[in-house]
Design a protein around this nucleic acid. Sequence first.
DNA 1: GCCTTTATGGTCGTAGCGACTATTAGTCGG
DNA 2: CCGACTAATAGTCGCTACGACCATAAAGGC
Lengths: 239, 239
Amino acid sequence: MEGYDKYAYEPFAVTVDLAVLTLREGALHVLLVERGQEPYAGHWALPGGFLLPDESAETAARRELAEETGLDDVSGLHLEQLRTYSEPDRDPRMRVVSVAFTALLPEPPEPRGGGDAAQARWLPYDSAGPLAFDHDRILADAHERIGARLENSCVATAFCPPEFTLGELQQVYETVWGTALDRPNFRRKVLATPGFVEPVPGAARLTGGRGKPAALYRAGAATSLHPPLLRPSREGRPA
Amino acid sequence: MEGYDKYAYEPFAVTVDLAVLTLREGALHVLLVERGQEPYAGHWALPGGFLLPDESAETAARRELAEETGLDDVSGLHLEQLRTYSEPDRDPRMRVVSVAFTALLPEPPEPRGGGDAAQARWLPYDSAGPLAFDHDRILADAHERIGARLENSCVATAFCPPEFTLGELQQVYETVWGTALDRPNFRRKVLATPGFVEPVPGAARLTGGRGKPAALYRAGAATSLHPPLLRPSREGRPA
DNA sequence: GCCTTTATGGTCGTAGCGACTATTAGTCGG
DNA sequence: CCGACTAATAGTCGCTACGACCATAAAGGC
């Protein structure tokens, strides 16, 4: 913040990039847009756009999220700043500094190709890529961040509809982490955490039901998960 | 990254801000510079500066760190991106987007007032502030981040000299967290974590010694701490 | 010598979790 | 209606890790 007078400084273009994740049919999906122009014409990229003059990055990210998903109300959606990418050569045309965000959606709507994107689609996380620019790395960072967040926070409910079963909640963990969890143990842990979920009295999910109907829960007031729900140890996870 | 043609975009000034933390005499200290000009003339602020045209934010942060601390070799120092602050009114003069970093230093040198800062000093964390701009918030976020990092990673050694005692390492935790820890339990936990620290054979710290001399350790190769070393529970920590 | 200080070595009880078994309540296919 | 299958729920057992202690060792101060 110092040095206005002694240092020359160059203005930069500032954008936001969004890693919008959701679960579709038990698989992690990411919202991507197809680029219509060079560079990377025809490639898929993360949605995003420039900051407007009076916007913060968070505001811009929420605006872009609304534009790309076509949702009326994005105010309740989980949006979290990931990190900022500023390598000088990350955009071949010009110097662009991009603030990346992760967003979590339940029950994803079909994206309207609104905004400026030629086309917007949900693609399975595993078959997404290679993406334009450094978006492969941003997406990987987002995945890692969400995986870590599931351990310490209650954001898993952000992937679920307003009322959900513990089986659905467990599927969130299993899908993001890519590991299977023991159902009774998961249940015990979640119910033992005050404020993680609260039961919906007298409601049970019967739809599509093979097997015993599951009780319904709503997201609780808690945001942090203490003690954490650690994923099965892979030796030496990144710090 | 889309919309070069359809949207007008405004260039922004991009800076880095550094929350440089260290331990001096058992208290957490932060490196601050005194502003010589308006706005906030005479106030303390976090060191920082503008990105040069061909620099990434990480490169700029390391350069600023070297300038402000006067250290020859900042290559081994722990530097981590915190988050980006982009509120439109955070700088009254102009639109500035700032990428904040945290840096951890062992055995802090006396800062030379080098670079552009009128004066640079170590100030105790608790008596730092109010700072210029939104630096109070950045500093608080940095503190919270470091506190969380101590739980899951081995960065605590970044506060220590190359060779240190377990007592010194414990002091890092106690100072950053503001809580007392049981010494035998801390010792058991650290030594039970492979790669956290490794003993220096046949060396003991005698200097300044009241009491039994302590064995010396070096930082190990591990970066993550599994299972985590949780701080004494305060109910409802932020996610 | 004795007391203080700090490091180090240990015990004991318990909360939490992984692995596993059992029961319940539904659908499906005859 | 009956049995096979499926998924949810309930409970058990054992181990690990940790919190709260107590004990001993090795230094300095007096």
